[in-house]
Write a protein that binds this DNA or RNA. Structure first.
Lengths: 127, 127
DNA sequence: CCGGATCCCTCAAGATACTG
DNA sequence: CAGTATCTTGAGGGATCCGG
């Protein structure tokens, strides 16, 4: 099946630097995006601090920035509860959950093949 | 199934910044990695200049750097034919082809859902 | 206290030019 | 053809501040 991109009227092609699909792929490819979406698929609704604690090594700046990007792309919703202290909850949309499927597959692949990769690495450095 | 990482003796966990799986995921997540692996899955063996032409917007530096990384991780092989002019061919290993499956799924997802994403974006900016 | 926004600085990506 | 060398720029990390 071939998709025609509405905004450009051209066929979707991630190999073309100007194609809108490519920009989207670049966002998805970001390491924080993958971890956030995968965490939300597993956990359901999460607060800002939950995500911050769950995802090791993420800075507040990048967490906020990536969450806003994901919200703009329609992958998740951001719900503010104006209580004291404030509560902000993030949850995947149906679109976000459909993206989470291939992303979770990628995470699983990494965890399942890590030992093969480490073997290849030590084989390379040994020569 | 839970994988124990040989080098650390700990369970695989991409959410931990120090886990080896996380470093691997960060490489895989890179936009160039995804495009290179996906291109090689579709085409089989490719020369340096083939990849350079196929992947729009990649600089020589990043192409070389990413290819060396993928070679070190055991995802592809690099074969030099010492002819004049020189020929260098890249091809996925079995490990690389197994990685290409979830990566191709991600590319396909992007191309198939681009119109939904653009709709979400314009809905957001309109408000 | 939570969920950021802001400032500053570093390091890696990208453009450009050159070479075996 | 298939890279390396060099320089530049800006995305990303750390620390700090702030409104509710």
């Amino acid at each position: 099946m071939q998709t025609i991109v509405a905004s450009s009227g051209l066929p979707a092609d991630v190999y073309s630097a100007k194609c809108p699909t490519r920009q989207v792929l670049d966002h998805i490819a970001g390491k924080w995006t993958i971890l956030i979406v995968d965490a939300l698929l597993a956990t359901g609704t999460m607060r800002y601090s939950d995500l911050s604690r769950r995802i090791g090594g993420v800075s507040q700046k990048m967490l906020t920035q990536t969450l806003r990007q994901l919200e703009a792309d329609g992958f998740l919703t951001r719900t503010i509860h104006p209580t004291i202290p404030p509560r902000v909850e993030y949850e995947l949309t149906p679109l976000g959950r459909s993206l989470a499927v291939p992303i979770a597959a990628l995470r699983r692949w990494t965890e399942e093949h890590i030992n093969e990769i480490e073997e290849a690495r030590s084989a390379g450095t040994a020569s």
